[in-house]
């Protein structure tokens, strides 16, 4: 079928007094975009540090899809994730875990990437629900991605549609074990294969107006 372009429309002038948004990328005050170097994975006192990291996972409070409804019960008396040292943080600068809770629209993907890159390393991504694994029931939507790990390094997948909070806790337990063993190195993989990730990301995010890496 011949694809039809949108009719070319006259874009009206913005209302008076409003400031047009700064063009992104160059000149957008984001500073010099430095290509980050992946540090050496080996580090001193790794066992202790990993124990600290595993027992104090701060979760980015960010919901992308219907799965985020399953996150809320975790803070309640019934499931109480705080007893494992898990806590919600509202800012990526202080978070260690990013949960992709369900389907992920292209528009959201861009925000997710930005949030992910603003998190301090080491950081972990948890894919929640089938949608993050293979598109799930939304596989043929014009606007959602089908495989999360093409764009972000996923450390733990929690399958199901939707997984229950117990499954989430189990997933966190798995992630903590992995961290303690020093195997949860998705962040490192991301940095090492940044070009590949970026290529994939830019393939779907056609209006790419981000710098190549946000700190």
């Amino acid at each position: 079928m011949e694809s039809k372009k949108l009719p070319v429309l006259p874009v009206s002038a913005p209302p008076e007094g409003s400031v047009p948004h700064a063009p992104l990328g160059e000149g957008c005050f984001l500073g010099e975009t430095q290509r980050p170097k992946a540090p050496k994975l080996r580090e001193a006192l790794a066992t202790i540090k990993n124990w600290f990291r595993a027992n104090s996972l701060w979760v980015m409070a960010y919901g992308t899809g219907c799965g985020s409804i399953e996150l809320r019960p975790l803070t309640t008396a019934r499931f109480d994730m705080e007893r494992f040292g898990l806590a919600m943080r509202p800012t990526p600068r202080q978070s260690n875990v990013l949960i992709i809770s369900g389907y992920l629209a292209v528009k959201s993907l861009k925000r997710v990437i930005r949030a992910y890159e603003q998190m301090p390393s080491p950081k972990w991504v948890v894919g929640l629900g089938s949608c993050t694994i293979n598109g799930g029931m939304y596989w043929d939507s014009y606007n959602t991605i089908n495989q999360l790990d093409l764009y972000l390094p996923v450390d733990t997948y929690i399958a199901g549609c939707m997984p229950r909070p117990e499954a989430l806790l189990a997933g966190f337990g798995y992630l903590m074990e992995k961290i303690k063993k020093g195997e949860a190195n998705g962040w490192h993989h991301y940095l090492e294969n940044l070009d590949w990730y970026k290529e994939n990301q830019k393939k779907v995010i056609t209006a790419w107006d981000l710098p190549d890496y946000n700190w």
């Binding site: 005050f29 500073g31 990526p92 930005r114």
Partner: peptide, 13 residues
């Protein structure tokens, strides 16, 4: 040191 607008803005630009 990060850029001036590189702030946490609900992951928005």
């Amino acid at each position: 040191k990060v850029g001036q607008l590189d702030i946490v803005y609900a992951a928005e630009v």
